[in-house]
C-alpha cells in the first residue's frame, strides 16, 4: 500500500473538517495508507495573496519541513496546492529550501488532480442534479476542469450542470474577502445566483475558501442547498 501524507488546508481543518475526512476515506477506498501530521501549518497562501511575502516565507519554511521526504502529499485544495507549486518562487527561498521546494512541487497534488493522474475512478450511484462551480485556481493554475473531467463518468444517475457562459470567480479571493468584503459579497451574490438558477439538488465546489464563500452567500439568500466538495459527493456515490 502506497503512503500518502495528507495536507489539510487551514480552512478545512477549522471550518470544513468533513471535507478532510472525506478525502481520507476516498484515498483509503483506493487503497492508500493515509498519514496526517498534526504539526503541519498553513501553506502560506493567505500571506502570499495578501502581499505579505516575509510572513509567507516563514510559513513556507515550516511547510516545506513538514512535508519533507519521499511520500506523496495530497490535499483537498487546488488553490493551496497551486500556491505552493507556483508562488513559492516569489519568496526568495534560500538554497536548501529552494531544493526542498523543487522536490515537493512534483509530489504535491490536489486530491482531484491526483485521482485524474492516477486514473482513479469512482463507481457508484447518485440520483441528483449537481451544479458545479469551477474554482479558479484548480481550473486555471492546476488546469483541472471539474466539469469536463471524467471524474463523474463512473457515477450513475448524476446530472451535472454548470454556468456555461464562463467560470467566474466566487469572490472569495482569500484576504480579498475581508479587505473588500462588500465587493466579495457582491460578486458572490451574482455568481451564486447563477448556480441557484440551475435548480440543483447539490452545489459542488472544489475548494475550501470557495465553499465557505458560497455557503455564506446561500445563507444570506435563505437558500437551503447543500454545498459539498467533490470528494464528499463521490463518497456518497460509492456508499450508494
Amino acid at each position: 500500500m502506497e503512503d500518502i501524507n495528507l495536507f489539510v488546508p487551514c480552512l478545512v481543518r477549522q471550518f470544513l473538517p468533513e471535507v478532510g475526512m472525506a478525502t481520507v476515506q476516498l484515498l483509503r477506498h483506493f487503497g492508500y495508507q493515509v498519514h496526517f501530521d498534526p504539526a503541519q501549518v498553513c501553506c502560506g497562501q493567505v500571506f502570499i495573496n495578501w502581499g505579505q511575502l516575509k510572513r509567507a516565507k516563514k510559513m513556507a519554511r515550516a511547510f516545506l519541513r513538514t512535508f519533507e521526504g519521499p511520500a506523496l502529499v495530497v490535499g483537498p485544495s487546488g488553490s493551496c496546492v497551486a500556491a505552493v507549486r507556483e508562488k513559492y518562487g516569489l519568496l526568495d527561498l534560500e538554497k536548501a529550501e529552494f531544493e526542498q521546494w523543487q522536490d515537493l512541487r512534483h509530489r504535491l497534488f490536489d486530491v482531484l488532480e491526483f485521482m485524474q493522474q492516477k486514473g482513479l475512478k469512482v463507481r457508484g450511484r447518485l440520483d441528483a442534479r449537481v451544479a458545479i462551480h469551477r474554482s479558479c485556481h484548480l481550473l486555471r493554475e492546476i488546469g483541472l476542469d471539474v466539469v469536463e473531467s471524467d471524474l463523474w463518468a463512473g457515477i450513475e444517475g448524476i446530472r451535472v450542470v454548470y454556468p456555461e457562459h464562463m467560470a467566474e470567480c466566487c469572490g472569495f479571493g482569500g484576504v480579498f474577502s475581508v479587505k473588500m468584503g462588500e465587493v466579495a459579497a457582491g460578486i458572490g451574490r451574482r455568481v451564486v445566483q447563477r448556480l441557484v438558477d440551475l435548480e440543483p439538488d447539490v452545489i459542488v465546489v472544489p475548494d475550501a475558501g470557495c465553499i465557505m464563500q458560497v455557503r455564506s452567500v446561500l445563507d444570506a439568500m435563505h437558500k437551503d442547498i447543500r454545498v459539498l466538495h467533490p470528494v464528499q459527493l463521490m463518497l456518497q456515490a460509492i456508499n450508494g
Binding site: 471550518f15 474577502s177 475581508v178 479587505k179 468584503g181 462588500e182 465587493v183 466579495a184 459579497a185 457582491g186 458572490g188 451574490r189 465557505m212 464563500q213 455557503r215 455564506s216 452567500v217 446561500l218 445563507d219 444570506a220
Partner: peptide, 10 residues
C-alpha cells in the same frame, strides 16, 4: 471585514 450580504463562516 467579512461584510456585505453574506452570512458568516461557521
Amino acid at each position: 471585514g467579512w461584510t456585505g450580504r453574506r452570512g458568516v463562516p461557521r
